[in-house]
């Protein structure tokens, strides 16, 4: 399986095989199906703070799963072999993350276009940036298998006690996933999380 038909070793095929690339793509595709179904529809989560409950859309929530999927696709079943490979692991992982993030972005846009919620694309992309960053931070500190922990730990208070106001106009800084698409602070935080998270993840990868 790791070689081409002519018998030569194929690094790409080996990489995809050891990282279960097909399963990761299938997982992200499943998330995209959920996004197509949920899309821009608002679901009312209970507000445990006692304030008025504010509906949340799939475009705000589902990127959490896609971001986690990007990082979980880096789980390497041949880690010992990969670490002794001639090509630096950091370079391989950078490429891997870029491609996986590209897949997640494409699937997000496609899902929202299919559900006729194209207006929600900026919000979904911002949250994809932020959640991928948080997942990367979680993966850097706890390992890629627990990449979902930080995003989930952040999402629980954000969606259950946050009061972002109508259309996310009054979101506080920690409620960035629920802020309006044009909220500059939320974009800055999402980009900062992505840069810090992927930076930490790649730095840890060499150690």
């Amino acid at each position: 399986m790791l070689t081409r038909e002519d018998g030569a070793f194929s690094p790409l095929r080996s990489h995809l095989w050891s990282h279960h690339g097909v399963r990761s793509i299938l997982f992200m595709a499943g998330c995209a199906v959920a996004l197509t179904w949920w899309g821009g529809q608002a679901v009312l989560f209970p507000n445990l703070s006692g304030e008025e409950a504010i509906p949340a859309t799939g475009a705000a929530f589902v990127p959490l799963l896609l971001g986690v999927g990007v990082l979980m696709s880096t789980i390497d079943d041949m880690a010992d072999f990969s670490h002794t490979a001639a090509l630096p692991r950091r370079r391989v992982l950078s490429l891997h993350l870029a491609v996986a993030f590209g897949c997640a972005t494409t699937l997000t846009c496609l899902a929202l276009f299919l559900s006729r919620d194209a207006a929600a694309v900026p919000l979904a992309l911002r949250n994809l940036l932020g959640f991928t960053g948080l997942s990367a931070l979680s993966a850097a500190l706890l390992g890629p298998r627990l990449a979902w922990l930080f995003p989930v730990a952040h999402t629980v208070p954000t969606f259950l006690i946050g009061s972002p106001g109508e259309r996310g106009a009054d979101a506080r800084w920690w409620e960035w996933p629920r802020a309006a698409a044009e909220n500059g602070t939320a974009w800055a935080l999402a980009v900062l999380l992505l840069v810090a998270g992927t930076g930490a993840f790649l730095w840890r990868a060499e150690r």
Partner: peptide
């Protein structure tokens, strides 16, 4: 048992308990 079970179970738990 899959590599994504933890993440899916956590999100499923979130939706189950909150909704």
């Amino acid at each position: 048992p899959t590599r994504f079970t933890g993440a899916v179970a956590a999100i499923g738990g979130f939706l189950l308990f909150s909704l």
